[in-house]
Design a protein around this nucleic acid. Structure first.
Lengths: 188, 188
DNA sequence: TCTTTCTTTTGACAATTGTCAAAAAAGGAA
DNA sequence: TTCCTTTTTTGACAATTGTCAAAAGAAAGA
């Protein structure tokens, strides 16, 4: 739980009372490789902090292919965002790629904490904003860069992804075919 | 200002006190077509609500081309998000495409209001979340759909864009060349 | 170790999309 | 209207990326 506290502090320090309340509401979740944290068709009721391990979000498209659109690593906040926020079933699956340790809090518990601790809601607002900026950067790369440029950007900003994730999933994440990524990689 | 109040209510109703405080902090901005709300290299210090008109966010890429990555229409919240949040100069230009009326609030004023009115900060958190979901949808379309599919999706979800925005800017927004968009359009 | 399975690479070819240049069409101003 | 500017379309060709199939390589279990 220390990792979470440290991570939080980097975004926005919260009061001791807020941290204590949050700690009490958190539930430790240990999940083995290849299991699922969230499955499509279900409402995702929890927001997680990933302390150890890694995982991915993907959905099955109309052609029956798995489409990976994000990876989660240590110190990331994890949820099926659309489902968690809208309280509706999502199409997203969250699969554990390495044995992982997470801390989870339910939607209800989180919102109760928001009522009691203004600074906790501020923290979440600020984290949301930072994640928004990341997403914006990714959209821009997707929209205006070639496959090769996107791969090179990934190499620079997130080399750990290359070491921990199979190529096919990375290709999907970059929006290209596995064959194309393999060819790009052999030419760099 | 009524439009803003109504728009807000759809996200999260706020107290009368919060609304009054917000109203007082808002500054009306009228801008003519082709002028700029935000220019690259500057820190964007305001969050706007667009009451009337339309505008676009774009940046100049390394090849000297304008790259459009969003449009704003009536009832949208507008800012150069990265710059507004991080308090750093951005690369984004916001150009007015039709004579527009906006209501603006400064970063400082907004944050002071957050301290005084918890429900206002909640409102912004919720709006942020909804905008995040939109962005996520756009990223997925960009990542896993063909140019034609993205165009057809735009036709369905935002036909007004087609009627108010030049083709070249729409093409850029869709991440394709103007010629390709023109050809797609002639074949639908 | 030897299989078996999963992952990655390679080849051949097709489909999509981009680029450059020019023509056509549309819109604005006098 | 008429002229001028901007926007859109079209053609020819090149570059990028995808698809299918097969081979090569790596990892995991018996």
């Amino acid at each position: 739980m220390n990792a979470l506290h440290q991570c939080i502090s980097q975004y926005h320090p919260i009061s001791i009372a807020a941290w204590e309340a949050l700690s009490k509401a958190l539930i430790k979740v240990e999940v083995p490789k290849n299991s699922f944290l969230v499955k499509e068709g279900a409402v995702c009721n929890k927001l997680y902090f990933l302390e150890r391990g890694c995982l991915r979000g993907y959905y099955n498209n109309l052609d029956g292919k798995e489409v990976t659109y994000w990876f989660g690593f240590e110190n990331n906040f994890i949820t099926s965002f659309y489902s968690f926020i809208s309280r509706k079933p999502g199409i997203e699956n969250i699969q554990i790629l390495e044995d992982s340790t997470l801390w989870g809090i339910s939607f209800e518990a989180l919102n109760q904490l928001f009522d009691q601790h203004h600074d906790l809601e501020r923290l979440v607002r600020i984290i949301n904003e930072q994640y928004y900026i990341r997403l914006e950067e990714r959209l821009m790369a997707m929209q205006f860069k070639t496959a090769r440029e996107r791969y090179e950007q990934l190499l620079e900003t997130s080399p750990h992804i290359l070491q921990r994730i199979p190529l096919g999933q990375i290709a999907s994440y970059l929006g290209i075919s596995q064959e194309t990524l393999s060819r790009i990689r052999s030419q760099v």
